[in-house]
Design a protein around this nucleic acid. Sequence first.
DNA 1: GCAGAGGGCGCC
DNA 2: AAAAGGCGCCCTCTGC
Length: 547
Amino acid sequence: MDVVVAPGTDHVNLLRDDEPMTLPTAELPGWVADQPADTRWVWADSSQSYPALLRAGVRVDRAVDLRLVHQILRRAHGAAGLPIALAESSAWDAPAEAPLADTGPTLFDSAVTGPGIAEVLAEHRAQQDTLAAVTRADGGRLRLLCHAESIGGLIAQELNQVGVPFDVEHHDRQLRTLLGEPDPWGGRPVLMERLVGRIRAALDARDLNPDSAVELLKALRRAGLQVSSTRQWELEQLDHPVVEPLLAYKKLARLHSANGWAWLASWVREGRFRSDWVAGGVVTGRWASRGGGALQLPRQIRGAVRAEPGWTLVVADAAQLEPRVLAAMAADEQMAAACQGADLYQGLVDQGVIDTREHAKIAVLAAMYGSTSGEAGALLPRLARAYPKAMGVVEGAARAGERGEQVTTWLGRTSPAPHDGWQEAQAGAQQPDAGVEAERWARRASRDWGRFTRNFVVQGTAAEWALCWLGHLRRALTSIRSADGTRPELVYFLHDEVMVHAPVDCAEAVADAVREAAHRAGALLFGCFGVEFALNVAVVDSYDQAK
DNA sequence: GCAGAGGGCGCC
DNA sequence: AAAAGGCGCCCTCTGC
């Protein structure tokens, strides 16, 4: 049964069985907990309404996140002409806001002025009508996408609440070892400062600030080095005494600014690293994160992500997810055969398509990203010959993008249209009086957009697979329980990777659930067309031990 | 003093 | 301009 929820200032408006109800805000969690487990909650935005329930210890199985679904349907409508238009209300088009601060006993911040109950209901009905109509044409793919997206919206909030187990002492020791003791007056840590001294000496530049790309570039040139930037790859080419300390400094400076003591103080509390996950935050459907850099957790610091005593981490990633997804969506039997093993790239070698694993990797990435030059370009014809269907899918998406058309993922997420300036550039280049420069610029923009749409269909469909994987796993975890009654908790999600913090005696059950969920995700999306979605599953004490 | 762009680099 | 898709974050620099 649907229950529609619209938070007000100090109360919550509800519709159950079309019957209106009002509850004081503080009573909502208890009331929600009393409803049947199969209730489908309908609200504007899980990132606004769900955190307070979670703080009160209440989880829900299902909830429609109208804002997330609206974004999908609106774009699909614009591109393909969905049979029923949705309201053009700005309330549903606004990007997801930062979650509300916990203001204590009150459930919703008093400043909330979200859509009212009538507006929420109207939007929900419009979406349901739209999906009902679309389902007759697409067999339910878009409906599945919207459902998965909504579940993702719940999971994002659950991850926000739980956090990643993080060993602060371990991280602090690591920082002191690598960076040196921190400077009490806010200067550079000891070992970093020492490297700065060596850099200055090597370049004979007394006051050089190596954090300034401008200053550094000048100093390098003054020392007679032919460089156009201060990037790592370019510095590596040089033969000069400054290179070693400079590269070492850059490495440490990155660690210090991105994941140093300031980061620790801001993002790690009570032994948990908490970010703000944004489901559907990326055009392709991938998630984003806000604050703390949750999606860029460097390998260097993963040793501090550590299971608590009596617990363990089950870390799983889908091996070469995107090319496998491509094989499945293209129904390319030959490529699917290469997916049989745990290593797709080796599969290409074994089929005699490409000579080495390294070349196979370059070629496959080139096919999905659209690179054409150098080694990659030379290898592509071999792929095209071996896997014409798969290459047809990405090439088709690229050509469509070059023409300015929108493309869609397997489940129907639509790519954005190119900007007005893009269209104008293309039109301008068609004019008889168009200059060579204008033509060149337009051609370049066209190819750039083609690379985007090429990757969109693969990256976006991979995100759909991952979302289904995550949803199945979430469900499976609810029925796993330790002998002492504790439950495994999903703590991390990274595009094609998940981490579950589990009581030690549940580890095997969790690992099985992760594999089963992957299998079901593949079947849900691609039916009986068999592509193996191989997983690497590791049961470890700390994240750095995985892979 | 602040916002935005750009350099640079981390992740997939 | 590292030739290749998607991001976020920190730092510096610039312009208002």
